[in-house]
Each structure stands twice: as C-alpha cells, then as structure tokens.
C-alpha cells in the first residue's frame, strides 16, 4: 500500500465531549494534503492525535504501514513524522542557530551524546546552516528566537519541523496571522522545503490551500465529509454548504 499515513476510524473525546468522531484518512507518499474546516471542527486536535501529543480514544493511526497509536511524540518523530504548531512553539531564549541545531541533532544520530563537542560536528553545522538558508534566516543566525518578528518566528517554526529530514511533515496553520505578502512568501517556502516529502497541513487561508494542495479533506464537527482534489472540493455541494459558502467568493 502506498499510503504513508493512514487513520482508521479515529475517535477522540475529552470527557463526554466527542471532538473527533470517526476519521478515516489515507495520505499517499509525496502528496500535499490540506485539511480545512470551520473553527472548532477538530483540525488541530486531529494533528495532536497523529503526532502523539494526545492519545486517541479509539481507532488506529499508522505511519509507513505500522501503527503509531499510543507512541510518545519523540517515538513518532523518530519514525519519520515531524510537525509544526499553530501557536508558535520554539525555544525562545536560544538563538536561531541553536534552535535549528537542536532540531538536527537527533536525525544525525548524536542523540544524548555528552562526550562530543557540538561546535565541532561539521555535519550538524552544515545541515543547520542549510536549513537556515532554506527558511531565509541566515542573517538572523545569532538573534534570540524570542525577539524575531512574527513572520520570522513562523519561518523558524517550519524550520524546526523540517530540520530533522522527516519524510512526513504536519504543518498546523503555517500562515496564521500573516499579511497577504508574508503568506505568499510562506507558501513559496513551504513548497520548497517540502519538496519530495509528504505534507499534511491545516490551513484557513483558502488561497494558500488551493495553491498548495494536491488533495483536500474537509473536516466538519469531527468528521471528514469530503476528501478530493481542490477542483472537486470547490464544486462539492455539501462542502459549499458546510463551509466554503462563506469563504470562497
């Protein structure tokens, strides 16, 4: 099977409140998949379930054909799935370079090494510098992440997600709160850095979604009501009624 990530009848409840009510989804290798839906539909929760931040109530999540349900976030990461966050989630008092460097260490096999000088590890330096170049923050190398501009922090957020070279990338509203110009730049950035990878993103900005995605799933009230190409989604009556009616002009 070519689905790199699949969800089978995934449910999530917080107490009596059902947030995700039976989601089944297959994302093939290399696809750029967008998840859209109205506020409170459970999009971010779905990401938290896939990435291991929350445990699922029932159902199975599989990565590369192996179940990852119940694994810790770092175990899922080590199997090749990395994510960004909707609310910027970086290391605020570390420099941009330190942020990125921390995110490449595990992938390059240095793990918990307390006997190797990190500054002298050429592979780490080169990978970190390459990531900084690709997210356009080379000039801001030694600036504390906490004092970057909002758009720069969003770029760093994506940088942390891609630095380790994971082949499945989850981006949670990468352009949230950006101006039109910033968001166009972000789309360009996402397109470049996810080349050859599988991308699943939650996004509110329809121009971003229709510009980037190969396929779109529409999540409404914890269920996927449609999963199809952008063109088909645009024309889907149920989707228009549930969601796009107000968003597309």
């Amino acid at each position: 099977m070519s689905a790199v990530l699949s969800l089978a009848d995934v449910h999530k409840s917080f107490g009596p409140t059902a947030i995700i009510r039976g989601v089944t989804l297959n994302v093939p290798t290399g696809e750029r998949h967008a998840i859209i839906g109205p506020n409170g539909a459970g999009k971010s929760t779905l990401f938290h379930l896939i990435s291991g931040r929350f445990p699922v109530s029932s159902g199975t999540v599989s990565l590369h054909g192996r179940p990852i349900t119940g694994l810790k976030p770092y175990e899922i990461y080590r199997r090749g799935l990395s994510r960004s966050f909707q609310v910027t989630n970086i290391f605020p008092r570390l420099s941009v370079y330190e942020n990125i460097r921390c995110a490449v260490l595990w992938a390059l096999g240095y793990k918990y090494a307390f006997w190797l000088g990190v500054d002298a590890l050429r592979s780490v330096r080169e990978r970190a510098e390459a990531v900084m170049t690709s997210i356009g923050l080379t000039r801001r190398r030694d600036v504390q992440a906490g004092v970057l501009t909002y758009a720069e922090q969003r770029a760093l957020e994506i940088g942390l997600a891609i630095a380790g070279g994971a082949d499945v990338i989850l981006l949670d509203e990468p352009t949230a709160g950006m101006s039109r110009g910033e968001s166009e730049q972000a789309v360009q950035l996402i397109r470049t850095v996810t080349q050859g990878k599988t991308l699943i993103m939650v996004e509110h900005d329809m121009s971003v979604v229709f510009g980037l995605a190969d396929r779109i799933s529409v999540l409404v009230y914890g269920q996927i009501i449609a999963s199809d190409t952008p063109r088909a989604i645009r024309e889907n009556a149920a989707v228009r009624e549930a969601y796009l009616g107000q968003a597309v002009h």
């Binding site: 770092y74 990461y77 290391f91 595990w106 307390f114």
Partner: peptide, 28 residues
C-alpha cells in the same frame, strides 16, 4: 563546562526552554 558544549548539553537548554517542543524534535 565541556558537557554544556555537547549535543546533550544543548538539549538540556532546549528542555529548559520548551520541554514540549523538545519531544517533537526527537528527544525524550
């Protein structure tokens, strides 16, 4: 001092700054 300059030492700082994100870049 040397330990602060190692991969482990840098990850100690990362865990201090933001333990949650450290888990999402591969570290327990």
């Amino acid at each position: 001092y040397a330990i602060t300059r190692t991969p482990f030492g840098r990850m100690c700082n990362a865990v201090r700054e933001n333990p949650e994100r450290a888990e999402f870049i591969g570290y327990s």
